[in-house]
Computed example of a mutant assay.
Amino acid sequence: MAQLFNALGFWNTSATRHTPIEDVQGIFSGSLIAALGLFMLASAGLLTGSTAGIAFLLHYAFGVNFGLAFFLLNLPFFYLSWTRLGMAFTVKTFIAIGLTSVMTSLQPKVMDISAIHPAWAALLGGLLLGFGLLALYRHRASLGGVGILGIYMQERFGIRAGLVQMAIDLCVLAVAFFVTTPPVVFYSVLGAVVLNLFVAINHRADRYIAL
């Protein structure tokens, strides 16, 4: 029993490496919460930034399956992850992206949101995505794409990952003007700002070191 508690991290009182069990629960939980955030945004017809935003654009404009597009768009970023952030980060990120893609596709089968105000969807969706990303970051994983670039920029140059992602997200959302209406873009930008401010404030190397 003591060995199980140690594996789960219940008795850890000092900075130690995450155990495999801790990584499993952290990556699964982060992916599930992120998938719920994406579903919340999609229920109001909103978008987000990064590769998820591009996947949303392809879904809304051409009917492409969001989960599949999200997975495929992240593949090119694995080279940067593998060469700059290491094999362990890359493998855990690959698993997180796969889990999030599958669970996002399954959400409509297990949950139905008949009506939600876009402002509320932007707030909840942004916060849920932020919580999901934070859980993944703290277990040395991400949802790929700009998240990989953001972590690299923070670790290499000290630039906050959330600020890097916010700048790129706003560029992605600017393209949304060509495929959707201004109110949708406005609320989508609100969700992206909520998401990235949450990550920028809470994901700091001086407060939490992911091992």
Rank of each mutant, 00 (worst) to 15 (best):
M1C: 10
M1H: 06
Q3G: 08
Q3R: 11
N6G: 01
N6V: 02
A7W: 00
G9V: 07
W11K: 15
A15D: 14
T16I: 13
H18E: 10
T19E: 03
T19Q: 05
P20S: 02
E22Y: 04
D23N: 09
D23A: 02
V24F: 13
G30K: 04
L32A: 11
I33W: 00
I33A: 03
L36T: 12
G37Y: 01
L38T: 09
M40Q: 08
M40H: 02
L41S: 02
L41C: 03
G49Q: 08
G53I: 10
I54Q: 07
F56D: 13
L58W: 06
L58P: 07
L58N: 10
A61D: 09
V64E: 09
G67T: 12
L68D: 04
A69H: 08
L72I: 15
F77T: 15
F78V: 09
L80W: 07
L85A: 10
L85V: 03
G86T: 13
T90G: 00
V91L: 14
K92C: 11
T93K: 04
L99K: 04
V102P: 00
T104K: 06
T104S: 15
T104I: 14
T104G: 09
L106H: 01
Q107E: 11
P108Q: 07
I113H: 05
S114W: 01
H117P: 01
L123C: 05
G125Y: 05
G126F: 06
L127D: 05
L127Y: 03
L133K: 04
A135G: 03
A135H: 03
L136P: 14
R138H: 09
R138P: 03
H139Q: 10
R140T: 10
R140D: 12
A141D: 07
A141S: 14
L143M: 12
I148N: 14
L149G: 00
L149F: 07
G150C: 07
Q154S: 02
Q154I: 02
R156H: 11
I159M: 12
A161M: 11
G162R: 04
M166V: 06
I168E: 06
I168V: 14
I168C: 03
D169F: 01
L170C: 01
C171H: 00
L173S: 11
A174S: 14
A176V: 15
F178V: 15
F178L: 15
F178T: 15
P183T: 04
V184W: 01
V184T: 15
V184C: 02
V185W: 03
Y187L: 12
S188I: 08
L190P: 01
A192W: 06
A192G: 11
A192E: 08
A192C: 09
A192P: 14
V193S: 06
L195I: 08
F198N: 13
F198H: 13
H203T: 04
H203E: 12
R204P: 04
R204A: 03
A205M: 09
A205N: 08
R207V: 05
I209Q: 12
I209P: 00
I209K: 13
A210S: 14
A210P: 00
L211W: 07
